[in-house]
Design a protein around this nucleic acid. Sequence first.
DNA 1: CTCCTGACTCAGC
DNA 2: GGCTGAGCCAGGA
Length: 126
Amino acid sequence: MLQPKKQAVKKKERLIAVIPSGKREASPAAMIYDVVRQIPAGRVTTYGAIAKLLDLPNARMVGHAMRSVDDKGRAVPAQRVVTSSGRLSHDSTGSRRKLLIKEGIQLKGDKIVDFAKLFWDPAVEL
DNA sequence: CTCCTGACTCAGC
DNA sequence: GGCTGAGCCAGGA
């Protein structure tokens, strides 16, 4: 999947500890929001990484969670979440791309330059 | 409650 | 590197 992975250690427990009590595993979406919110500016992660961290069988729900959040106007940096190929998906107006660039991330078209270096692995960093 | 859709990913060509 | 098809689930209608 991803090369820069140092150690694919599951730190689910640790992550959950960071999540405000009350949410927990009430709904997978809630945990996803928390993870995404912890992505530092200037770094990016993938749907798959998050899905793996939370032991979700498919990364699709991560995207759906983002979508829902977006509709709700939630404060979640969805622009820092990309596909496993390091590309932006469904960047309707290119607004996400702009945000990333503003954070110092270089993009070639819809693909992230040095994706491997900018990749932020929640399982390792968290 | 059932059906449909979809911010994805992986294996195969 | 790119395209195609299939699998996976949650949330909305």
